[in-house]
Design a protein around this nucleic acid. Structure first.
Lengths: 343, 343
DNA sequence: GTGAAAGCGCTAACAC
DNA sequence: GTGTTAGCGCTTTCAC
């Protein structure tokens, strides 16, 4: 491991017997350089194993190729998929994406924002931890911002959203079609866009079908597995437990399944039906396989990349919102065995 | 969105009626500054919403707080967990971690290496895609390197490994104890450390118990779900299918479960037993729940952080290897119902 | 076509 | 205690 100092443009210039300006021209293909000189420079570049210094370049040009992505949970496959789509698209445009985890925590989010600020990221894509917590900080960013999956209290930024109301409605209608009457929901936090919209879409759709949801059938979780687990147990313990449960995100669905699995007398597809929001790897492994509202996660990242690069080119253009449609994937878990006989 | 130019140390200096040097001193708490002056500077700092420029600072000090992590698959919870541990520990030491995905692909890995080089990362933690593909590039890095989970063809770098042989041995012994005779393995790629060691540990342990593994019971996958699925189907289709299958990583275990689930006549815990390497979220949801060789994933990240920061302080100290122990988590899937009667 | 030189934002001697 | 100044590595006028 020879810890050789990084070669600079100056080293290259000396070796190729030219000025640093010429080396720069060759590297960036900017301005005319004689073919022969260029060849000499290229050779020196290779011989020295020159690696450009991104900082120095960014300082001189007042702009880097760095893009920030702030997500609430790097371990959640949903956000990993967004990163995937974003990164691929950004790479094509010569941009590098740095993903940072906010832990869905305003204070950590503030730190993340600050860090990307220090590194002078040219744009920030963020799924905010809270609709208002870091509002001021985000307004002060001074570089393009694009929100993904969740809105903020102010509507100043480009948005990539899912039609949550529509997705929840489809789930509700499917439950009704399967003959369920006692339908429950494990909702998300009501200070987040997805939390509110999914609950609303679900409740409204059931109401339209003439079904009122009693309060004890509406549970509020925090989008984490543990809350899905404990809330599901509360539902199963009711005197008149629901025959159908809609879980509002992937992690809570995992908890819900775990609860059903471990609850005496409860059985998926027998005593209780389930629809989850967001597909999960185990969907096809449960018995019956899991019916879910699925959404184009990677595509959300792709759209975010497009919005933010467009805004980098035209900072003053009007705010834009992209709404992607969810898709119901029916696999069987939306019904239970005995139900049709009872109706 | 007022796209105000970033404030510089110079702006602050003017506002506080001091020199840039003094501002720098206040920011970095280096050198003496009169309390009153400091107060004036601090005030200006806040009023202007000053955010330091990491690049400029790094250029001036010839060193940043940037750390690179290159993983084969950001979507794999195993690597996400490593990031988690690494990031937390690094943050305590004032370092920021940039995780980059190599897609387990030497070419993309090369690009990742290059990118972190351009950004002058102060250290690189990497799970190499291939034992030799980018060897030269890694040797040329010139900044501390720490390998996680996989070795390289040369033993020049600090290492964080799992005792794979030991983990596989425990799995084999448990199968034997459960009365299995026809035991198969879905192994990983044989050009990777974990692939080789887990196979070896398993085969050797069985041999020690007097059990030879016929070649048709040894399948080679690529650590991805799809290969777990198709190889499992091959095993189940044998004239004398195994009663026990050991899967060598989390993704292949998912495929294996899927295959068992969908294969006519096959049933987990009835016709076939399973042990997986690495825990997965669904372990407790299968029936019977899944027995796995589990390992301290986050801790691997923590150890990597420690090794690399230690090396940053003492670049010439002897190479160090940390081997962490895996742990067998017995949940029931290692046995099948009828087996004990037959012995 | 090519080079000299200024400057990006910051730190670190070195003076005072 | 505080200011002046010389870089860090690079790009970019502006001359020639």
């Amino acid at each position: 491991m020879p810890p050789t100092r990084h070669q600079t443009i100056k080293d290259v210039a000396e070796r190729a017997q030219v000025s640093t300006a010429t080396v720069s021209r060759v590297i960036n293909r900017t301005g005319k350089v004689h073919a022969k000189t260029a060849a000499r420079v290229t050779r020196a570049l290779e011989e020295l194993g020159y690696v450009p210094n991104a900082w120095a370049r960014a300082m001189a040009t007042d702009g880097s190729d760095l893009m920030g992505l702030i997500v609430p949970d790097i371990l959640n496959p949903f956000f990993a998929a967004i990163y995937s789509g974003l990164n691929e698209t950004a790479k094509h445009r010569g941009l590098a994406v740095w993903m940072v985890d906010s832990g869905d925590n305003p204070e950590k989010e503030r730190q993340a924002l600050h860090m990307l600020g220090r590194y002078r990221a040219q744009g920030i894509i963020i799924t905010p931890a809270h609709p208002a917590a870091n509002l001021a900080a985000i307004e002060r960013i001074g570089t393009p911002v694009c929100l993904v999956d969740r809105r903020l209290a102010k509507n100043l930024w480009d948005l990539v959203l899912i039609d949550n109301v529509n997705g929840a409605r489809q789930a509700a209608q499917l439950f009704v079609a399967a003959g369920h009457q006692r339908i429950a929901i494990i909702a998300g936090p009501q200070d987040s866009t997805p939390g509110v919209e999914r609950l609303q879409g679900f409740v409204d759709a059931l109401a339209a079908e003439g079904l009122d949801m009693p309060p004890e059938y509406i549970k509020f979780g925090d989008f984490r597995q543990e809350s899905g687990f404990s809330l599901a147990r509360e539902l199963l313990a009711l005197d008149a437990p629901p025959t159908a449960i809609f879980s509002c995100n992937n992690l809570m669905t995992m908890g819900l399944l775990q609860a059903i699995h471990s609850y005496p007398g409860a059985a998926l597809g027998e005593t209780v039906a389930v629809i989850g929001f967001d597909d999960i790897p185990i969907s096809t492994l449960t018995d019956p396989p899991l019916t879910v509202v699925s959404r184009p996660m990677k595509e959300m990242g792709v759209q975010a990349a497009k919005l933010i690069t467009a805004r980098m080119e035209a900072p003053e253009k009007p705010q834009e919102t992209v709404v992607l449609g969810p898709q119901l994937v029916i696999r069987g878990s939306e019904k239970i065995a005995g139900l049709l006989r009872w109706i």
